[in-house]
Nucleic acid binder design. Structure first.
Lengths: 201, 201
DNA sequence: CAATATACGGAACGATCGTTCCGCTTGTCA
DNA sequence: TGACAAGCGGAACGATCGTTCCGTATATTG
């Protein structure tokens, strides 16, 4: 009766204005949650969408459902991007490039951060599952880099993911903002690199 | 008229039960805020202290005041500990030991984390000031280590502090918990170390 | 254009939480 | 021990926020 299919966008039945509002709400939510994080009031989303709260609730039965819809899409991007790098010729570049992309994306969208940061605790299971998939894909990139002796062998994907979200969070908290995110991520990257010491050769 | 002196504990005038309640409230708040973070309901603190909310509010005019009292004490410890390490014979050990201590302390007390994480934004100015002092002391430790060529020169105290608190926070969010906090902090440490290599990679 | 299902808007509700108020209890002191 | 100030408890208030409800508006269809 409703959206139903998880796979992708589907020509939706219903009144034309309903479809338009559905889209508007998603766009508004995307913007508001990015800027303000998961705890932004739902009324703010409705206002921004030029829609009453009632309408919003007809399209998304719960705040969490709306939030989930936005975040799932974002995380999906993160996931696809990771998978597309698996098996690259240069495993080291594949990993570090991805980490940079991950950081940039997360820094721009506070909602993703919120979702990932608290993935273990309460966010609805569908998000947690997707996050787990991202961790798995990241794990593959990591393993490749480790086998190429570019990254320390004793780092796990979970740890790396936690580190990355920490880095971005740290960057966002300070007033410097996006500029320093890059630097902080660089520190983390340096931390997991394997450093070929002089005495080793 | 009230507590007044910032320096230390003072024999307080007033009824005996009032003094007892004051102490009880502080103890309860310490425990509750550590466990639940800054957003724990005030009623929970009152209940734990075996006291009515009214009583709590007579001793601390505002939730923020209570929170501040607890957190300031904790941050003060962090600050003293940092200062005591300034000028140590081994600057490298001084810094890294302190970071480990900082992480352990912050992991055990969610309240400190909450306060530091959002120090730039809204927490009352007295906390922000103290945090700034800690950053400054940490900056001295950092500078020493950098002059000893043990740590990269392009890392700032603010960055390091943000990264540390975020790392601990990220580590706590995951289900692994405190065990992995140590490892995550270790990776960060590795990231700021200077690795003596003729030509990296 | 009329009829009708569909969708809309926003007032109102209930839960949570910080804070205030005031009638009652209790420590203190003579 | 009695009187009184100091202190206490917790009901109640107001603000915020998620969610519900229902009278109204409008897209659609024939």
């Amino acid at each position: 009766m409703n959206i139903g299919a998880l796979g992708g966008e589907e020509t939706r039945a219903g009144r034309a204005d309903a479809q338009r509002n559905h889209r508007r709400i998603l766009e508004a939510a995307e913007e508001v949650f990015s800027r303000e994080g998961a705890s932004a009031p739902i009324d703010l989303v409705a206002e921004r969408a030029g829609v009453g709260v009632g309408t919003l609730y007809r399209h998304f039965p719960t705040k969490e459902a709306l939030f989930e819809a936005i975040v799932l899409a974002r995380i999906e991007e993160l996931l696809q991007s990771a998978r597309s790098r698996v098996g690259a010729e240069d495993p080291e570049a594949a990993l570090f490039d991805y980490l940079a992309y991950f950081a940039a994306e997360a820094a721009a969208k506070r909602d993703v951060l919120d979702a990932i940061a608290s993935s273990g605790i309460d966010i609805k299971s569908r998000c947690a599952v997707k996050v787990e998939e991202v961790a798995q894909a990241l794990g593959q990139l990591l393993e490749q880099a480790q086998q190429a002796r570019a990254v320390r062998g004793d780092v796990s994907a979970q740890e790396l993911m936690a580190l990355m979200s920490a880095a971005v969070q740290a960057a966002c908290a300070g007033e410097a903002g996006a500029a320093s995110a890059e630097r902080i991520v660089a520190i983390v990257c340096e931390g997991i690199r394997v450093h070929h010491t002089p005495e080793a050769r």
